[in-house]
Amino acid sequence: MISRRTIVQTSLAGGLIAGLAGFSLVANWWPKPDRDEEATGWRRIAWPFPRDAFPAGRAWTRDGTEVYVRPKLGFCGNCDTGVVEDSEIDGKSDIDLLDDKFTPVREGKRIQITDLAGRARLYRIKKDGRERLAQGIAVSLNCDLIVAVVVGKVDDDAVARAAQRFLETNTVQVWLNAALEGK
């Protein structure tokens, strides 16, 4: 017959092993910051949106600014001209994931992220019960789109530029290039 002591010891050992395994799983699952993230201070956060027509993207935060980015394969309305109209940023940039009642603040403007051109537009949104500003970005590579939303004080050019520079780092670009090949 197994003694009570053995049962308790076995249970404790099992619990410890399960706990360590769980911790190891979480530690491995949650990505370590890469060199660019460490250098720039951007911290990866979970993609918070439910599943939709496109695979999940990636998200980062720094100093109250959040960046949400993902590729949308084959979703560019015109493979030759790319993104040239504000209605395309309204409809395709994922700004509706933050707030489906978003309001444009002003007309969009041309933007370039690395060698990809498109448009960016400033919006007013409601997030977590309070009013925020957000910049929707849509740039294209032939028939594919790369979209991003930057939430924060993006009416401040320095904040918007910093987010844009982050989008150009290897942290984002290496992942995007792989994702654009369907990997």
Binding site: K101, T103, P104
Partner: peptide, 8 residues
């Protein structure tokens, strides 16, 4: 209109 844009 503002907000979400329905499918083309």
């Amino acid at each position: 209109a503002t907000g979400q844009v329905p499918t083309d």
